[in-house]
Design a protein around this nucleic acid. Structure first.
Length: 800
RNA sequence: GCCUGGGUGGCGGAAUUGGUAGACGCGUUGGACUUAAAAUCCAAUGGCAGUAAUGCCGUGCCGGUUCGAGUCCGGCCCUAGGUACCA
């Protein structure tokens, strides 16, 4: 009988899912293993081959761990709030709730057709009020601790999507989704004070097992730098300018100051500024510049002197001018800098453009030509008490001096900014805050959670950039929980990152309706042993969710400070043409079609065989056939199973394969693991008969990759129980070792011949054999060997 | 610009601490089976020269270390991703 995947796959999926074969058991005595994959956004397009690649890695691990005797939690859910659903709903005039439910149904069905061993009894859906009740609850806790606040800022506004975008969503000055040019709009919005956790988020990385580049990306995102805060008096006023600098040693070379266009000093000392009109004009034009213009490669150092104001350099005591220039950002440090043109390239450019004095305070360069920024060998000059010191020593000396004279102090600064936590759309979690008439903000009573979305017909955003919720009186009009007066509900919703920042906690106790998850269950399951997801989520999502977890740990809601032990990221699957898959390019591969044509086992196998898991790699239609052929071979092998005892050669290869497959799986080298299974099957296929035990071992090794065919053949051998909890094979080192080895003979480093000799043959005996070799004589000729290098069981190299 | 990956046959990709370059798969070619095709099986398959044995050349480029380099060192080039006037 032929291999008919569509028949056996349906049969086994039914058997697994109807019998809860993959159910994770709370508090079970077996060791636990928590394997987590990033939950999908259930788009209308259904499952993508990228999803399959993202999940199959931990699918293999989860299936292997169950066979190794672990109590495995391998959950799945849906990150279902978000713009595509909302936009689709607006276009088709269907409620986003209906769209979401339909999409989740399709996704679930498709995931099951692949045969993923998820525990479907623990599915979470971020748009389920029973879920986002706790998202809102967490927000309230953050608010109570002062970690959620409102602030007026300029936000990136997309005039086409009518939505406020984060910096990340408006990179290059264009909207992430529709590509329109982003405008700057002043607005009061919500922020989460993630900066308060910056140091801990950095420290916690030490316990996270991951690729160096993944760790580095997070470190760069957090962007810690050490230096000092220095206070400059603004002469003749009460105002002071505080700056952050990593180079306090260069203070004596600070010949002017620069503040960001948004800096409050301008308003505070407006009356002193004699060219105020021009300054106002400069501020205006800076605001109109898009992010793109402000950061594009041609970085003209525009700027304007604040006439009428001077600052005092606390090092030299000299008065120095103050400029406003848009190369200084309000969002980093204090929004003001001390400019040291001699030793900073940007300040150098600005000084040259505005004809300002350049003072050399670090010897070693030529400041007539360029700023000198070498901190390794530079020696301080023109710097009073620091003269003659190295840069390192001078930094230290200056900080001590500043602290003694109370002109400044040692400081650490972070590039990471507070998390803009808002969206002006319908399809998101309402922020559970009530604005009382008297101007105060009151969190919604926890007993009144969840704040649900009103049932409405229209969820289009308003032209003003306000959430569509702002127009719905039934939603906005409430009485204040503290004073009972008329009040108005917050109408902003949370960004999509909210629900995904804690979903891994909910999986441990998904149906709890008194708390986000039971602490004992969290204690049992956490931390996540292995988390896999996209490279693109390696910074923001991982940092955001670690932040929430650390906060929840601080308030005692979660038992561990760091939620993840290990993080991996799969590479992209590209189209056949090597480009990113996209509808517009028409190079999207639909996994369901592959399943219909070849079967789910073939799809799983091929996607893992396609290349290095962590590297991007193009799809290849005929490559899929190879995976199918391999399964056909495994199927046909069944007819050759016999009750004989296995030959020694087969046994050796089998144990070598067990060992290699085991190691390759753990090292995320699924492609080579499969290659080794193929080698084994090729070898077994050559024999007339193979032993039943050998075949069973093969099926067990294959089971994590292609579980349907493995189960079917295993059952046909007469087994009543499934392979789900069958024991995973263990390699026996004694049965792995070869009796003979091939030794390479080379002359002057060039391979000339090979010999098969007994393993661990001693050097003298080996030498004798080598000098008996005809080809060696040919290549040696008359020359006497100068040196002989022997690498045991590997090679002999003769140097002449 | 800076940071991090990656450049290996016609293609996807393998190669412990430096020690047989090209595992495995695809494709291609030839053969077997078949009325025929598909499927399957067998064989060959880095390049050049040669009837062959065999020899020479080959892991982005240039140079170095070494008995020996895809692997280590120095200097470039290309490419993908991240980040960007970060003080």
């Amino acid at each position: 009988m032929d291999y008919k995947p569509h028949l056996i796959e349906k049969k086994w999926q039914k058997a697994w899912y109807e019998n809860d074969a993959f159910k994770a058991i709370d508090f079970d005595e077996r060791p636990k293993y928590y394997a987590l994959v990033e939950f999908p956004y259930p788009s209308g397009d259904g499952l993508h081959v990228g999803h399959i690649r993202a999940y199959t890695s931990l699918e293999i691990i989860a299936r292997k761990r169950r066979m190794e005797g672990y109590n495995v939690l391998f959950p799945i859910g849906f990150d279902a709030f978000g713009l595509p659903t909302e936009n689709y709903a607006i276009k088709e005039k269907i409620h986003p709730r209906k769209v979401t439910d339909a999409n989740i149904k399709v996704f679930t069905k498709q995931l099951q057709r692949v045969g993923f061993s998820f525990d479907f009894s623990r599915v979470v859906d971020t748009t389920d009020p029973e879920y986002f009740r706790w998202t809102q609850w967490i927000f309230i806790q953050l608010y109570k601790k002062g970690l959620a606040y409102r602030s007026k800022t300029y936000v990136n506004f997309c005039p086409s999507c009518k939505v406020v975008l984060s910096n990340e969503e408006s990179q290059g000055g264009h909207c992430d989704r529709c590509d329109s040019t982003v405008e700057q709009k002043e607005k009061e919005v919500w922020f989460l004070k993630i900066t308060e956790y910056a140091e801990r988020l950095l420290e916690g990385l030490e316990t996270l097992e991951t690729l160096p580049r993944i760790r580095l990306e997070q470190e760069n995102w957090i962007g810690r730098s050490e230096g000092a805060h220095i206070i400059f008096d603004v002469l003749g006023t009460e105002s002071r300018l505080e700056v952050f600098t990593t180079r306090p040693d260069t203070l004596f070379g600070a010949t002017f100051m620069v503040i960001a266009p948004e800096h409050p000093l301008i308003d505070a000392q407006a009356e002193q500024i004699t060219n105020l009109a021009a300054v106002r004009h400069y501020q205006q034009s800076a605001r109109l510049k898009t992010e793109f213009e402000r950061t594009q490669l041609i970085k003209d150092k525009t700027g304007l002197k604040l006439d009428g104001l001077m600052a005092e350099n606390p090092g030299t005591g000299e008065p120095i001018p103050i400029f406003v220039a848009d190369y200084v950002m309000m969002g980093y440090g204090t929004g003001a800098i001390m400019a040291v043109p001699g030793h900073d390239e940007r300040d150098y450019d600005f000084a040259k453009a505005h004809d300002l004095p350049i003072v050399e305070v670090i010897a070693g360069g030529d400041i007539k030509q360029a700023a000198y920024t070498d901190t390794e060998t530079g020696i301080l000059i023109n710097s009073g008490f620091m003269n003659g010191l190295s840069v390192d020593a001078a930094i230290d000396a200056m900080i001590k001096h500043l602290e003694k004279t109370e002109r400044g102090h040692r400081a650490v600064n972070f590039k990471m900014k507070d998390w803009a936590f808002n969206r002006q759309r319908y399809w998101g979690e309402p922020i559970p805050i009530i604005h009382c008439q008297d101007g105060t903000m009151v969190p919604v009573d926890e007993a009144d959670l969840p704040v649900t979305l009103p049932e409405v017909e229209a969820f289009e955003p308003t032209d003003s950039g306000e959430s569509p919720l702002a127009n719905i009186k039934a939603f906005t009009d409430v009485s204040c929980p503290t004073c009972g007066e008329m009040a108005r509900r917050e109408t902003d919703t949370m960004p999509q990152w909210a629900g995904s920042s804690w979903y891994f906690l909910r999986y441990t106790d998904p149906h709890n309706n008194t708390q986000l998850a039971d602490l004992e269950k969290l204690k049992y399951w956490l931390p996540v042993d292995w988390y896999n997801g996209g490279m693109e989520h390696v910074t923001r999502h991982v940092i955001y969710s670690r932040f929430w977890n650390q906060f929840l740990y601080d308030i005692g809601a979660v038992p561990v400070s760091e939620p993840y032990k290990k993080r991996t990221a799969q590479g992209l699957i590209l189209g056949v043409d090597g480009d990113k898959m996209s509808k517009s390019k028409g190079n999207v591969v639909n996994p369901v079609e592959i399943i219909e044509h070849y079967g789910a086992d073939t799809l799983r196998l091929y996607i893992l065989f396609i290349g290095d898991y962590e590297q991007p790699t193009p799809w290849n239609d005929s490559g899929v056939k190879g995976a199918r052929r391999f399964l056909d071979k495994v199927w046909r092998l069944y007819d050759h199973v016999d009750d004989q005892v296995e030959t020694e050669a087969h046994e050796r290869l089998l144990h070598q394969t067990i060992d290699a497959v085991d190691k390759d799986i753990e090292h995320v080298k699924f492609n080579t693991a499969i290659a080794k299974l193929m080698t084994l099957v090729n070898e077994l296929s050559k024999a007339e008969t193979i032993a039943k035990d050998t075949y069973i071992t093969l099926l067990k090794l294959l089971n994590p990759f292609a579980p349907h065919i493995a189960e079917e053949l295993y059952a046909r051998l007469g087994h009543k129980e499934t392979l789900v909890h069958a024991s995973f094979p263990k390699a026996d080192p004694d049965k792995m070792t070869e009796r003979n080895v091939t030794v390479v003979i080379s002359v002057n480093g060039k391979v000339r011949d090979k010999m098969t000799v007994a393993k661990d043959l001693d050097d003298e005996a080996l030498k004798a054999l080598v000098f008996d070799n005809e080809r060696v004589h040919k290549f040696l000729g008359e020359d006497a060997p100068k040196r002989i290098i022997i690498v045991k069981n590997k090679l002999v190299n003769i140097v002449v």
